[in-house]
Design a protein around this nucleic acid. Structure first.
Lengths: 135, 135
DNA sequence: CTACACCTTCCCATCGTTGGAAGGTCAAGA
DNA sequence: TCTTGACCTTCCAACGATGGGAAGGTGTAG
């Protein structure tokens, strides 16, 4: 199975598969006589694991750690849970920040007439001298 | 007022001020005889506008458009509102995605014992073959 | 005069991803 | 067999926004 087929099978672009290999996320695959990368079932399994972890928004560093734990049959689930909860905490922070931004911005937009007139609370607000954001 | 003072006054690092200038977000400032950039009140005002727009998470492209509208006294508020609402929509999408990720991940973590035992629903889930994320 | 803080331009790194160029390989059809 | 087209290979570069740092000039205070 060459890289194009593996890409189709896993949903990871061939470019990305090579990149993951280059940063040590994936082991170098076998090569055919002419140098083509060749992927077997286990490699595909690993690729799908990476794919799903990316979907979850894990960083490369986190995925590296998860892969290590994944292939360690004696890993304590504590370590995996810690990584997951760390990511959940990151997500919560991000969500909160974005929600706050959205609320302020939506409110400004609500108060903007949105017609031909130049007056606009949005620009008015952007003019504000606010060193601490969104106060 | 040189770039360092402008940076302190606006909260934008000097590096970023130069970068914004290089991409055409800011007009080239006056220079002293020895080549130092010199910022006046209007330039500071513009910088603060950019700072606040960044705080809101607007992209450089959006900020460019907002700056253009800002300096156009006859702009229709409609255009500003459209940019703001577009950004609100982007934020909503992102918030929804992240929330969904967080919920799934938090649930997996909740079901993970998190002790010395190797069994772990998180890794179990990451193994799944899921082409469409989070189904 | 010297020290130090600042300024200038330049290049490089990040992170994850995408694009392209230049060249080799494979499989199908004429 | 030759050609065509789709694939593969490696390498280089860009994105957006930011940070670090080198090498060299400038400003100011002691």
């Amino acid at each position: 199975m060459n890289i194009g087929e593996a890409a189709k099978a896993t949903g990871i672009p061939a470019k990305m598969i090579r990149y993951y290999e280059s940063i040590g996320l994936l082991p170098p695959p076998n090569r055919t006589g002419s140098g083509y990368r060749s992927y077997d079932g286990e490699a595909l399994h690993r690729l799908r694991f990476v794919r799903r972890a990316r979907d979850f928004g894990f960083s490369m560093k986190q995925i590296k750690a998860l892969l290590r734990l994944w292939s360690d049959r004696k890993r304590p689930s504590r370590e995996v849970k810690a990584i997951a909860l760390g990511h959940v905490a990151e997500l919560n922070m991000k969500i909160e920040q974005l929600t706050q931004l959205r609320d302020v911005l939506a409110d400004l937009a609500r108060r903007c007439s949105g017609d031909h007139r130049p007056h606009c609370p949005i620009l008015r607000d952007l003019e504000r001298d606010a060193h601490s954001p969104l106060a």
